[in-house]
Design a protein around this nucleic acid. Sequence first.
RNA 1: GGCCCCAUAGGAUAACGGCUAGUCCACCGGAUUCUCAGUCCGAAGGUCGGGGUUCGAUUCCCCGUGGGGCUGCCA
Length: 473
Amino acid sequence: MVRCRFAPSPTGNLHVGGVRTALFNWLFAKNQNGSFVLRIEDTDTERSEKRFEDQILSSMKWCGLNWSEGPDIGGEYGPYRQSERVALGFYDKYAQELVERGQAYYAVYKKSNQEEVLRTSTETPDISGDEVCTIKFRIPKGKTEFSDLSKGEMSFENENFSDFIIIKSNGFPTYNFAVVVDDHMMDITHVFRGEDHLTNTPRQIMIYRALDWEPPTFMHIPLILGSDRAPLSKRHGHTSVDHFREEGYLSVGLMNYLALLGWTVDQEIFDYHEKIKDFIPSDISNKGVVFDYEKLEWINGKHLRLLDPEELIIQFGLWLKFTGRFDYYASIESDQFYSREVLTMCREKINTLEQLFDFSAPFFSDELDYQEDYVLKYLRSNWSKDLISAAIRRFEDSFDWSVEGVEKTVRELADEKITSKKNTFQTLRGGVTGRLVTPGLFETISVLGRDKVLERLENLLEMIEYEERNLSD
RNA sequence: GGCCCCAUAGGAUAACGGCUAGUCCACCGGAUUCUCAGUCCGAAGGUCGGGGUUCGAUUCCCCGUGGGGCUGCCA
């Protein structure tokens, strides 16, 4: 039975590197019909915060990376929070065992100088009030070897390592110790993690050996880098999953991009749930990969255009609520049929839900925000009044509001040659939307419908006349 | 400093040791057209350097160079 885990530390939001690691663990677990476990590594008492844990879990759920055991749902290998495992004495027990086997020892320091070890012992030392005590692992002689699914055969001379702390002076285990104890106790069979852990692995394997435990299979995944090839961080741009969610990326799009980063598949656009059967760890590139915001956006746009119209409304609605735009959400909900028409039309030209929000705004609000360029270039022209008046007359007489019908009306209007064809189109476009960049004009007018179009054009006419009066005064 | 990982166009990748080094994003040009986008067609751009093995090296080996990681009572 294959068991994989994702073990984030709750010291910040879930970032794209983390999800990618989680994704590969998840894919492998599913591919092998195994389990995917979530464990919280909160042994850093200074930086760990519950709110980060909550955020990580929520981000994971949004990504669709469901776990079968975890801190929120428990499981037979629990608890799944290292702080709770400390309380149960798991780490102490095995640290003691290492001391008894002569493979670890106590080290006493002065509180004021924690650089210098005062004395060591194999018995619990008596310490005075100004001293603290840790347990350190003794590096054995020889060499440590293991086979990494990505990097191949790895070999390290143990003499290159020095004894390291496994139990801190506050009684908590250090990462390198806790991870071994937990992965062993939880029967983890495969560990896929970031490449930054590659040289921690021999240390961990030494502990496995010292305790007569069998290490899991390791695979170290290359890091995600920024444009300067340094590991991706805030200074390269946004990195947290929540950010991409807020920006209007679909989780299926974000996951698609992350999966594609370093992994070649025949079909580039996919839902990762469909790729479970194709997941082979060795197919993943062993090279650091630069995060490409542009390709992510392109992929997201593809997914947005692939969604069923109903699903598009659902996703858009969820996003509006997530970002607190409840009024907008209410207007989407109030007329499903209309919303569907508008959104499927608008999505042809945008890549994110945020862009969809902006692009569709003129269709859901009657308070048009006329772009300055439009006012200057088209409204304040000597033909705008005549053109709008003529348009109103034609639309009043028109009973065919299909896209084809609207096209006929508009083309006939242009044929009157009140102004150029382009000016005619752009003036109408801005007149019904306030903007110069919109979906196709015929579709736009058709979808808005007779009432809105006439109302907007008449308002526009009033605006023009109002401006004229003001100018002549 | 020590140990370790990595190296194909700007980014991501493909190529049993064997065709003119293929594809996607971005970029550039063209077509379609009412704006923008999309779509279609086309162009430009690459095997880090030096040795070696071989009939033949992107591929295997060594050395350099460059980037990255670990070397924490962070994970």
